Amino acid sequence: MNYKTLDPSKTYLITGAAGFIGYFLSRKLLEQGCRVIGIDNVNDYYDVNLKHTRLGNLEPYKNFTFIKGDISDKDLIMKTFEEFKPNVVVNLAAQAGVRYSIENPDVYIQSNIIGFYNILEACRYNPVDHLVYASSSSVYGANKKVPFEETDFVDNPVSLYASTKKSNELMAHTYSHLYKIPATGLRFFTVYGPMGRPDMAYYGFANKYFAGEPIKIFNNGDFENDLYRDFTYIDDIVEGIERLLSNPPEGEVQHKVFNIGNNSPEKLMVFIETLEQALSKALGKEVQFEKVFEPIKPGDVPATYASTDQLQKAVDFKPETSIEEGLQKFADWYVDYYNLKD
């Protein structure tokens, strides 16, 4: 397998560095001696304290420079590129969340479309070795064919969030074609783990339990046709990104898209039971959620399931962390972070 390993002599610009994936990727690169420039607007879409905790963990690294700002600010992005001359750019800054895009469309256009356009323009005028950017499994919409493959038709998004991510792929392809920017899009599948996003279901379930509230499950209480999700542990996501960083696409149009998912979808109810068991173990007492079943929400899809053949072919990697192992690490961190041990 001929793929190039990470080059610590390069400068890596990571947008969304205070975010879940951005933090873990920054930390991994810093541990290997890379220079990392992190940008984040530290918005309050979810608990800002968690973002500050992540940034606090990155600050001791002498190779880390943090810039508080928004990628939709074109002047800031241009100045950052001119000053730091990054070799590799990883754009993880985005307004996340499918359901929130129904209530608050403006921020998605601002961050995910205008912000990404600014990154592309900056790469156009300050050439980089590789632009890696976050897409999403949501581009597959309500595709019935599983597993989802990168070659599948993705022109029927069911949320504005998904539309913005599909737009990013089209924009990157165009800039790659016109200005020879080597670019790779990553379709992430339900990322979870310690220090994750509190707006994600597993984190919300834990929050509800400790607040003494029932959890809402949006599957109509239909256990036969339960929602399936390809839950992907954070370390697997970071490993996949890291392996791709020094391996830009080649060919006439230097643009490629990869799935990064676990390739083994789990029923939502199985995931919930596993989380109950993990929290029980972390606390040393039995945890059982009170459950309320509701209809599936607009913009949600019944199943996500990634084919990871392309990723394996390119960089010899396939995510393999089981939900038992991943959720235990989350539960142990959660109980410790919120100081919940009696």
Rank of each mutant, 00 (worst) to 15 (best):
L6Q: 01
L6M: 08
D7W: 06
P8K: 01
P8L: 00
L13V: 06
G16D: 12
G19F: 01
I21S: 04
G22N: 05
L25H: 04
R27K: 15
E31S: 15
V36T: 07
G38V: 04
G38M: 05
N41T: 07
D47Y: 07
L55M: 09
G56N: 11
E59Y: 05
Y61D: 14
T65V: 12
K68N: 13
G69K: 12
D70F: 08
D70V: 09
D73C: 09
D75W: 02
L76E: 13
I77M: 06
E83H: 10
E83P: 03
N87L: 04
V89G: 06
L92R: 00
A93P: 11
G97A: 08
I109Y: 08
I109D: 13
G115V: 08
G115M: 06
Y117D: 11
L120Y: 00
A122V: 01
R124Q: 00
V128I: 14
V128M: 05
V132C: 05
Y133S: 11
S135V: 11
G141I: 00
K144Q: 14
K145D: 13
T151N: 13
D152Q: 10
P157C: 08
T164C: 06
K165V: 01
K166Y: 10
S167V: 07
N168A: 14
E169A: 02
S176T: 09
H177A: 13
Y179F: 15
A201D: 06
F205K: 10
F205L: 05
Y209L: 00
F210L: 09
F210M: 07
P214Q: 07
K216V: 10
F218P: 09
G221M: 07
F223P: 13
E224Q: 08
Y228F: 14
R229G: 13
T232C: 08
Y233S: 13
D235P: 06
I237Y: 03
V238K: 05
E239A: 11
E242C: 06
R243F: 03
S246G: 11
F271M: 10
F271G: 15
E273S: 12
G284R: 04
V287G: 10
F293V: 06
E294R: 07
A303N: 06
T308E: 07
D309K: 14
Q312R: 09
D316H: 07
E320Q: 08
Q328I: 05
Y337W: 05
